[in-house]
């Protein structure tokens, strides 16, 4: 088996006295779509931020694309960052730039493509995430929350990254938009061999596109396919997947 794309070993996170993660292990292999779920305040976003290097864990080792994220030279870090894309919860678009300019930022920074091609790539991304063409020339403050999220996704996808990190990607989207988003991720994932790591609460997304699901409970990860997790005895996991919403999503998948 090829080396995992993301590899986390013995990760611990502490904020003062409060222990958030205590020995988290995770392997994500290439081309996999993995969903991270867990109750509020269990440190899902913290784990995501640690993997992309925005926070430093208290202990443990994180490797992304075979590189230890903690000991990187500046140039290695830059080239690694060009190979992943991250979608923040509220899009985190640069508010002084239009949507198109936002998407062009990584392209201009990391490639030497001619401006007309960069422009076309940016426009195509705008269309691919389902935004109308005229949204490209708008500023983030002129867009609705859902549109900002799509624009953020377009920026995360600008470099056609190998790994896509998504923080609650479908929260705030209408159900049709959320389904289209799942489909988009699915098709990109197939054609690019994209690896997707998403924090989500959307059970429909979990059923629709996730190959495996990682559940943060008791400061550790429980990882498995949906079928495996459905058989889990842990009370939180049972409530999560067998609750009314879990059953509805499961039924939708079955039909």
């Amino acid at each position: 088996m090829a080396a995992p794309v993301i590899r986390v070993r013995g990760l611990k996170t502490r904020f003062g006295q409060q222990v958030v993660h205590d020995g988290v292990d995770l392997d994500v292999s290439k081309g996999e779509v993995i969903g991270l779920v867990g109750g509020s305040g269990t440190g899902k976003s913290v784990l995501l931020r640690e993997i992309v290097g925005l926070m430093v864990p208290s202990a443990g080792k994180i490797e992304v694309l075979g590189k230890d994220t903690e000991n990187l030279s500046e140039s290695e870090r830059l080239s690694l960052q060009a190979r992943w894309g991250m979608l923040f919860q509220d899009g985190a678009l640069f508010s002084s730039l239009t949507v198109l300019e936002n998407i062009k930022v990584p392209l201009k920074e990391h490639t030497k493509l001619p401006p007309d091609l960069i422009d076309e790539i940016a426009r195509v991304k705008v269309a691919m995430v389902g935004l109308p063409p005229d949204a490209g020339d708008k500023y983030p403050s002129q867009l609705s929350g859902g549109m900002r999220k799509r624009a953020g996704l377009a920026r995360a996808l600008a470099m056609d990254p190998e790994i896509l990190f998504l923080d609650e990607p479908t929260a705030g989207l209408d159900p049709i938009g959320a389904a289209a988003f799942d489909e988009l991720i699915g098709s990109l994932q197939k054609s690019l061999g994209l690896t997707v790591f998403m924090v989500t609460h959307d059970l429909d997304s979990l059923y629709a596109i996730c190959d495996r699901i990682a559940v943060l409970v008791d400061k550790k990860l429980v990882i498995g396919t949906i079928d495996e997790l459905l058989r889990q005895e842990h009370p939180w996991i049972r409530d999560y997947f067998h609750g009314p919403r879990g059953r509805a999503a499961s039924a939708a998948k079955g039909s």
């Binding site: 076309e120 426009r123 195509v124 991304k125 269309a127 691919m128 063409p133 098709s187 054609s191 690019l192």
Partner: peptide
């Protein structure tokens, strides 16, 4: 087939993205 699907997606997006 998967590459073809992506090409179709992009072609559709590019057609829709023509600057008005």
């Amino acid at each position: 087939s998967d590459l073809c699907a992506l090409l179709k997606d992009v072609q559709r997006a590019a057609a829709g993205a023509e600057p008005k």
